[in-house]
Nucleic acid binder design. Structure first.
Lengths: 240, 240
DNA sequence: GCAGTATACTTGTCTGACGATTTTGCCTTT
DNA sequence: AAAGGCAAAATCGTCAGACAAGTATACTGC
């Protein structure tokens, strides 16, 4: 009946599954920034042919999750300050257009409020297992997932396929940086949840201007946290 | 001395050359919308192996210049009204951010004024060879190139790699639609040049608000021309 | 005459191997 | 002893072939 199934359950293709697996390993920080990712390594680790691994690396490179030049091995990038600013400038450009369109329509996307609920329980988990290291890492990962899902739902609700596609690329790199700074993260997760609420509130009130400002504030906070973390790491390795 | 040559003369790689060639054939309208593009056809036409052609089609698909679902032949899309609106909404989102940033800095990109000069001579050529069909088509192609170059220079001048990358994808589809409507084009090219001038003027005056409005007007005009052309074709094929 | 099914053709995907290029380690020379 | 050149190893780009899945068509039965 309907042209396409709304819920594709799993990656039917082998290349798709491989791509998703490697992608998750990169954004979760399982593969450290600066680490070499050769085609042969991927092929061996997953027991697939090299052209398959090659296609996977090319897709990741196109999305900005890998850096590679001709005849050189792919490495996962470590974003410096200038690139983080560039990333968040692009992110704000896309998400600003989204929240303005949503506020004009005055419709709060249900998916976003669902992601907010998941965000809150994840924040509670993080605060609860503060001492336990492994549980903390797991809870943090789900928290990041919920954060990504929130912003993704915001853009998806606009209904623009091209805006969503651009945002998907941007969010990939955002996810990457969050995963890389995972270990030393110290931020209170409830602050993020409150900032999300402010955005949804402004959208529901049909106030594009305020929604835009709330979003800018939220992204500025996030960028500031990332830059502060980056400077802290820089000084740490300077002492060593 | 310098890390990378500022002017990469030609695609050194075979895959790159193939990709560029097919891309140009698509955006110039040499390959009609709806036409099937099989891997074997590309491989035969260019005398390359199938995996090479496959990689080429995948890259084109990722950029939106081809549509393909699993186990089905890739076709060049013909954008309907909803998709053209979506495309121009995304385009305005990106270019608006660019002109605002440029107007804030108050710097007019030299590349843009160069593209404007090229645009004017191309417009003159188009008007001159109005009767000659082949010359007209050639002049129109260079005019479209100059138009693309102008908007591309605008975004490139911001200095954001990610914004430029998003814009490149968007402009690819824009180029595609312009190439498809090439045959029946009737617009006065000087109007476009004047609208471009208004944008540059506002940027030079350091007036972000006016630059934004001029851009919105320009894109609205362009979108209107495309939609009008599309409706005309629809009625034509309804009569036949 | 129409619909359902089976077959054949086309297409997409996966696997293996060869040649070209870059990088790195070592040797020679100044 | 240090720097430059050379050689060897490793990696990337490309090509050729076989298998499986999907689609379209033709045929048969109703």
């Amino acid at each position: 009946m309907d042209g396409k199934p709304s819920f594709p359950l799993g990656p039917s293709s082998l290349t798709e599954a491989l791509y998703e697996s490697v992608r998750k390993r990169i954004v979760n920080g399982d593969i450290a920034p600066g680490e070499k990712l050769t085609e042969i390594r991927i092929a061996n680790e997953y027991s697939v042919a090299r052209p398959t691994a090659k296609a996977c690396l090319e897709r990741l490179t196109a999305l900005g999750l890998l850096r590679r030049t001709t005849h050189k091995t792919a490495v996962v990038p470590k974003l410096d300050e200038a690139e983080i600013r560039d990333l968040y400038f692009s992110r704000e450009t896309v998400e600003r257009a989204a929240v303005v369109a949503l506020a004009r329509a005055g419709k709060v996307p249900p998916e976003a409020v669902r992601a907010q609920a998941a965000m809150r329980v994840a924040a509670g988990e993080t605060a609860q297992h503060g001492s336990d290291q492994s549980s903390h890492a797991g809870a943090f990962a789900t928290q990041v997932e919920a954060d990504i899902a929130f912003h993704s739902a915001l853009v998806a609700a606009v209904g623009s396929r091209r805006l969503a596609r651009m945002h998907e690329v941007i969010l990939g790199e955002v996810h990457l940086t969050m995963g890389q700074f995972q270990a030393h993260r110290t931020t209170d997760p409830m602050n993020v949840a409150h900032e999300h609420d402010d955005i949804l509130k402004a959208i529901g009130d049909g106030d594009p201007e305020r929604a835009q400002q709330c979003l800018a504030h939220h992204l500025d906070q996030a960028q500031g946290r990332l830059l502060g973390q980056l400077r802290r790491e820089r000084s740490e390795e300077a002492h060593a």
